[in-house]
Amino acid sequence: MAITDKIYVKNHRQLSSQLETNIPKGAFKGATLDLLFQGDGLEKLDEATRERVLDFTEDFLDCGCDTNPYCGCPERKFMRYLLELREQGLGPDAIVDVMSDDYMVYAYSGDVLSFLDQSVRTLEAVEELADVEGDDEMERRARQKKESLSG
């Protein structure tokens, strides 16, 4: 299961009430993405909430794909965001706090930790495959990225 399947809308019930519609708890569920992408009813949200929702939309749903927001770009952008937070030295608890402050979404720290661990393991595999293939540049890049995620 991808980390984006474990990202949830903070204050889900309050948001549903303000929008006067039911939305899934998952931030990357189809109905949630539809609502954000189309912007229907966002004027009903209080100003602070609307700003965070619009930030989320601009940062993750903005791409030129024909199938946007179902093209996979929002999920990839969000995973990149999590990895960048880790590269800044933040641990899982701090990453959850920042994503909550930035976008009103949250995850469980254990899920973030598992995602980060899986990312490091993937980079180790890339590094080893690059070594086998003799691709020194890719091996170096994978090693550097792995080290920046490992802390």
Rank of each mutant, 00 (worst) to 15 (best):
Val96Asn: 00
Pro74Ala: 07
Asp111Glu: 11
Gly72Glu: 01
Asp55Gly: 13
Gln88Val: 09
Leu15Phe: 06
Val126Trp: 11
Lys146Tyr: 08
Glu51Tyr: 05
Glu75Asp: 08
Ala2Cys: 09
Glu127Cys: 08
Tyr103Met: 01
Cys73Met: 15
Asp131Leu: 15
Ala2Ile: 12
Asn68Tyr: 09
Asp97Ile: 06
Ser100Glu: 04
Val105Lys: 00
Gly110Asp: 05
Arg140Met: 14
Ile23Gly: 02
Ser114Leu: 14
Met138Gly: 07
Ile95Thr: 00
Glu139Ser: 14
Leu113Met: 10
Thr21Leu: 09
Val9Gln: 02
Leu83Gln: 05
Arg52Thr: 05
Leu33Val: 07
Arg121Val: 12
Gly151Cys: 10
Lys146His: 10
Leu116Asn: 03
Glu137Ala: 15
Lys145Asp: 08
Lys25His: 09
Ala27Gly: 02
Asp97Glu: 11
Glu84Trp: 08
Glu20Tyr: 03
Asp40Cys: 03
Arg141Tyr: 12
Glu75Ile: 07
Asp136Cys: 10
Val112Arg: 00
Gly151Glu: 11
Glu20Pro: 02
Ala27Asp: 01
Phe78Thr: 00
Arg13Met: 12
Gly72His: 03
Gly91Asn: 15
Met1Cys: 14
Gly41Gln: 01
Val9Ile: 13
Asp62Lys: 12
Gly110Asn: 05
Leu61His: 01
Gly72Tyr: 03
Pro74Phe: 08
Asp40Met: 03
Phe28Trp: 02
Leu54His: 07
Gln38Lys: 15
Arg52Leu: 09
Cys71Met: 10
Leu54Cys: 14
Glu58Asn: 14
Gln88Ala: 15
Leu113Lys: 15
His12Cys: 07
Ala130Glu: 04
Glu147Val: 02
Ala48Trp: 09
Asp59Leu: 06
Gln118Met: 13
Ser119Leu: 08
Lys146Met: 15
Asp111His: 14
Val120Phe: 09
Thr49Arg: 05
Ile7Trp: 00
Phe78Trp: 03
Arg76Phe: 10
Lys44Leu: 00
Glu124Arg: 14
Ala142Cys: 03
Cys73Ala: 15
Gly110Glu: 08
Asp93Val: 14
Val9Ser: 01
Pro92Trp: 03
Leu33Met: 08
Gly64Glu: 14
Lys145Ile: 09
Arg86Pro: 00
Val53Ile: 10
Phe60Arg: 05
Ala125Met: 14
Asp136Gln: 13
Gly91Met: 12
Leu36Trp: 08
Lys44Asn: 00
Gly151Tyr: 08
Gln38Gly: 13
Asp117Pro: 05
Arg13Glu: 13
Arg13Pro: 05
Val53Met: 06
Tyr106Trp: 05
Glu20His: 07
Asp34Trp: 10
Leu36Arg: 04
Asp101Lys: 09
Cys71His: 09
Asp117Met: 10
Phe37Thr: 12
